[in-house]
Nucleic acid binder design. Structure first.
Lengths: 300, 300
DNA sequence: GCCGGATATACTCACTTCGAGTATAAAAGG
DNA sequence: CCTTTTATACTCGAAGTGAGTATATCCGGC
């Protein structure tokens, strides 16, 4: 009995935010996520990836978290013998000063998912997408209502609000409905830039995870420079979430968490009243899971 | 170059709640979690595990979710050639009627983590644990404050409240401090029942994930019978969280989510006023992520 | 048949949080 | 000096949350 021998591969979703644009590190001029074999010498998966990223890119890797492990049959690689297991990670990189618009290897998230950026209102492309999805719903007979609910929920239709966390569900629905090139549809009828194999799905997984996480863990600061203004911080969160936020309330939220402190300096780069500079209070670091219970505790 | 050839193994944390006790399926009379090789024939990891569990146990598997993939060097198996990659899953099983107290294979969570059950107040064993942890903090010189903060936060000391979600962090701290048998300390000085290899850590991962998830996703219902009373539901949540909840507020929480509906029947099993029976509204199923934003949106 | 114990269910109230809007301050440029 | 632009500060009502109290309905004993 041949038991579970397989190739192990690491895939990284490395993200940074430059100015207002969330970006991901790619190879093959934007067609694939960086990946490599899991070498035997490494102490752990985490350590292996960290080391490997340090070598490949100049950037030091701040935050690193495991995303998901894929091993579907259709992912079999070159050789028939054995299957490939892909272990994906999400990493956050602090983009130092140099935005480098044309930096090779870094591509904007929303090239791949143009329907996910709602900062300028609901993107026009969504009308076309949901139109095609309606056809797909109508094409089903047996479980049509179930399908309709899934679409309405994921895309904020029929009274439901747009939920930025559902990027993965949206991509998977579009895949099922044959609206993306990876599903085999013609490039002319597909939406967003496609990627090699299932890399775009892995990217969607990473984006969704990060969007969910910034709400209850102070991970945004892994993307910020040493000192920053509140507006910069807000624009970074907005870039990740693909949404615009209410300024006064954002500021209230931030300072009641006591995650940052003033540096004492100010900057007048943006033309207008100079903004105070802040820094992250490293004292809180890993600890502190914001808020919490949500369960109605009793006093015992 | 030998690239990433490894053994692949699936490990399952299968949980159920019988009465007031959360349980996990084990093998080797409670010393290990069920696991098996990842066979090549399966369509995907998920499908492979689901099929395998169906064969091994009679129970159908309701909910299934990937937990984490481990591949640390110290996990190397029998043969030196190649490393073992363990992909762990969390599965929820609906315990049908028969509680079977002495059911072989099912053990209570709190045998392994006696300090995690706070339903009867703060467990006495915690005093001993935190005492030993204080020694461990004192033994550090360079980063003593960091260590102290980690301990205080994880165990709810020095003003911090007990947070049921931090079970994994607590176990890892105890491992670091050498308070569990798996870390090589003498059985006399260790806390809780130990398991084979890193299985107890995987169990802690599953418990922590489930405790966090019941707060924002209706997964509890995967553990409930077809119809149930509100008290039963509350006791199940309490068993998982290891906490007692405020009854009136729990009921308010439940019915404002509109996740359940009355069956029309009632039961008078518990002696007292008969309780109405409810059933889960399957209409909402996968959809609906409870609540959501937490980010201060603007009206655009 | 009535009463206390036990459990289920319903309602109230103060306090905090949250969405939304308005007002003031400090720079730059014509 | 006045307008534009961005930063910062304050207010208010609606909704949500923690905590406690009141009423309903069964069981068993007297």
């Amino acid at each position: 009995m041949t038991i579970g021998l397989a190739h192990a591969e690491l895939i990284a979703v490395l993200s940074a935010v430059t100015g207002d644009e969330p970006r991901v590190m790619t190879v093959r001029s934007g067609d694939a996520l960086p990946s490599g074999p899991f070498e035997l010498g490494h102490r752990s998966l985490q350590a292996g990836l960290r080391e490997w990223v340090g070598d490949q890119t100049g950037h030091p890797l701040g935050y690193l978290e495991q995303l998901y492990t894929f091993a579907d049959r259709d992912r079999t690689h070159e050789d028939a013998e054995g299957r490939t297991i892909s272990i994906s990670y999400l990493g956050l990189v602090r983009e130092q000063a140099a935005p480098g618009a044309g930096k090779p290897g870094w591509h904007g998230w929303y090239e791949y998912f143009p329907w996910e950026d709602h900062r300028g209102g609901r993107p026009e492309i969504l009308a076309a997408i949901t139109g095609r999805l309606q056809d797909w719903v109508a094409a089903e007979t047996a479980r049509r209502e179930h399908r309709r609910r899934r679409v309405d929920f994921a895309f904020g239709l029929d009274g439901a609000a747009w939920n930025e966390d559902l990027g993965l569900q949206r991509y998977e629905l579009m895949y099922e409905a044959g609206l993306v090139a990876e599903a085999g549809c013609s490039p002319a009828k597909s939406f967003g830039r496609s990627m090699f194999a299932d890399h775009r799905r892995i990217l969607a997984t990473g984006i969704a995870r990060l969007r969910a996480k910034i709400k209850y863990r102070p991970v945004v600061f892994e993307l910020m420079p040493e000192s920053f203004t509140l507006s910069q911080l807000q624009r970074t969160v907005e870039a990740l979430a693909g949404l615009t936020l209410h300024k006064p309330n954002f500021r209230r939220l931030i300072d009641q968490q006591e995650l940052i402190e003033e540096t004492g300096e100010a900057t007048s780069e943006t033309g207008g009243r100079p903004a105070k500079l802040f820094r992250y209070r490293h004292a809180v670091l890993e600890e502190r899971a914001l808020s919490g219970s949500k369960l109605p505790l009793s006093r015992n």
